[in-house]
Measured scan of single mutants.
Amino acid sequence: MATGGRRGAAAAPLLVAVAALLLGAAGHLYPGEVCPGMDIRNNLTRLHELENCSVIEGHLQILLMFKTRPEDFRDLSFPKLIMITDYLLLFRVYGLESLKDLFPNLTVIRGSRLFFNYALVIFEMVHLKELGLYNLMNITRGSVRIEKNNELCYLATIDWSRILDSVEDNYIVLNKDDNEECGDICPGTAKGKTNCPATVINGQFVERCWTHSHCQKVCPTICKSHGCTAEGLCCHSECLGNCSQPDDPTKCVACRNFYLDGRCVETCPPPYYHFQDWRCVNFSFCQDLHHKCKNSRRQGCHQYVIHNNKCIPECPSGYTMNSSNLLCTPCLGPCPKVCHLLEGEKTIDSVTSAQELRGCTVINGSLIINIRGGNNLAAELEANLGLIEEISGYLKIRRSYALVSLSFFRKLRLIRGETLEIGNYSFYALDNQNLRQLWDWSKHNLTITQGKLFFHYNPKLCLSEIHKMEEVSGTKGRQERNDIALKTNGDQASCENELLKFSYIRTSFDKI
């Protein structure tokens, strides 16, 4: 039985969820670079991206490699990797027998973001014989899940209580170790020597080791999670996991709180800001991140802002960003909400898709409305799209047979046209069989910064309504002859009103 693990408890099935942008060198404390989270699957090609990484700022997932063999891993080693800020997950990587050479110096898994409450997941690794993470000293947050690894031993010899604050939620089941077939031998045991430290858990006094050649490092209890030197002297209180010299914040392997210019500090002093819960960055760093993602459509890219001495992905609820200094300031009234469309555009074809934009005031991208039916549609669209004030790209209304009016965009005031449909149009209306009105132009103002209007096959939309939009939106004169079809717009509506004058002759039985 794995020490510190839980057996036999019912657990939810383990679901495996399925960018080499360097964020800056980590400095003297770390020998390499800070790398983003990685999802490495199918083959070993991307694994080489770990070569210079000291910190993975995010998670590391290595999974679904069915053609790899043990010899493929023999020359692979990433000794610079010290810390993973989120979680480490391995799933069905064939041929991998140990992690001792792959990650010989991995010391800390912070667990800032977890995989279903777990910071370390080893699942269905069919050839893994031992973990071998002999320098792993601290899992700051989260638990361990090690399950269905039929060859995995050296679990009962690990004292997880020396690595985690609590072992109650560890789930370590259905491994070879369960069948008591392992016969784990710690260093020196074969020669009758006791080389590794022994600890007591559940009444068992057991030597602690990761492999037959690597003991588990056990520091004096007084050192807590700070770690200790090879001689057993406690590291500085700002260290986490390990250090090369005692009581020196510049000799830590990793930091308990924050890293700044080669030393570990309790908090980031001005003019620095907390970033990702582990390091200090200056304003320029946060500003660069903001600008890199301002026009990016890459998933996970955030326009970072500053709030409460932190550089964070977005302002919290009730705050909006001051564009001059990136500071989050309290909103006066309802907060603006910028919604970034991942692929640059979004099609609204149902109430469900409209709900995804609920509360958005600025759309960074283009909207395509293609709704053919739905219950209580006008009210639903207004509830979900009615706060949109600005669209950076274009607005396209296409084959939306259920629409009679666009009044559900009740606050839309600006279409920038930074991206144009077919390279020309910022407003595009095609084949809307029941569209009769755009907006009530006596109450609604709309500016279209650039781009043209396109109207074709809107049989109940009168040309007068379209011409009014040209005047109000500032697009009059931009359109070419064929942009607004004269014969297919309003051709099934009563669009022309003329005053009919009647004269009559009164007659009676005795007068003409």
Results as ranks from 00 to 15, higher is better:
87 Y>S: 02
169 D>Q: 14
217 K>A: 14
247 D>T: 03
319 Y>F: 14
62 I>Q: 00
209 C>H: 04
236 H>S: 13
292 K>P: 07
153 C>K: 06
70 P>C: 04
220 P>V: 05
287 Q>I: 13
46 R>Q: 08
36 P>H: 03
64 L>W: 01
224 K>Q: 08
130 E>N: 10
240 L>Q: 06
59 H>T: 07
232 G>D: 15
195 N>R: 08
83 M>Y: 03
178 D>W: 13
174 L>W: 05
310 K>R: 10
173 V>P: 12
31 P>K: 08
302 H>F: 15
248 D>R: 03
252 C>Q: 00
286 C>L: 03
171 Y>R: 01
304 Y>A: 04
305 V>P: 04
178 D>C: 11
175 N>H: 15
82 I>S: 08
158 I>E: 04
211 T>S: 12
271 P>M: 06
269 P>M: 11
181 E>S: 07
313 P>K: 05
182 C>R: 12
155 L>W: 11
140 T>C: 05
177 D>G: 15
99 L>K: 01
53 C>N: 00
149 N>W: 01
234 C>M: 04
262 G>A: 05
327 L>S: 05
199 T>M: 04
313 P>T: 10
158 I>V: 08
109 I>T: 00
71 E>F: 12
89 L>F: 09
309 N>A: 09
233 L>D: 03
297 R>C: 13
62 I>H: 01
227 G>N: 03
216 Q>P: 02
287 Q>F: 10
171 Y>F: 10
158 I>S: 07
46 R>L: 07
88 L>I: 15
147 E>T: 15
39 D>S: 10
191 K>L: 07
233 L>G: 12
129 K>M: 11
305 V>M: 12
315 C>L: 04
99 L>G: 02
278 W>I: 03
38 M>R: 04
57 E>S: 07
163 I>L: 13
85 T>P: 00
110 R>M: 12
134 Y>W: 14
92 R>S: 06
137 M>P: 01
257 N>H: 07
245 Q>G: 15
57 E>P: 00
199 T>Q: 10
214 H>N: 14
334 P>G: 06
50 L>M: 09
174 L>H: 14
151 E>T: 02
127 H>Y: 04
204 Q>R: 07
134 Y>P: 09
170 N>M: 06
87 Y>V: 00
269 P>Y: 06
102 L>A: 03
324 S>R: 12
72 D>R: 02
200 V>G: 15
102 L>K: 00
215 C>Q: 08
108 V>D: 01
197 P>F: 04
97 E>V: 13
175 N>T: 13
290 H>G: 08
214 H>C: 14
88 L>A: 01
59 H>I: 05
75 D>P: 06
32 G>F: 09
249 P>E: 03
122 I>W: 00
60 L>P: 00
225 S>L: 08
84 I>K: 00
280 C>H: 00
124 E>W: 02
73 F>I: 14
33 E>C: 14
278 W>R: 02
204 Q>C: 02
316 P>D: 12
56 I>G: 00
199 T>E: 07
139 I>V: 08
303 Q>L: 09
120 L>E: 00
166 S>R: 07
300 G>Y: 05
157 T>H: 13
312 I>F: 01
336 P>H: 13
163 I>A: 02
48 H>L: 13
120 L>M: 06
192 G>P: 05
214 H>F: 14
146 I>L: 13
65 M>E: 13
263 R>S: 07
103 F>N: 00
308 N>T: 07
132 G>A: 05
137 M>C: 09
189 T>I: 12
336 P>V: 13
158 I>A: 10
224 K>D: 10
232 G>C: 12
323 S>P: 13
257 N>W: 03
302 H>G: 14
54 S>R: 14
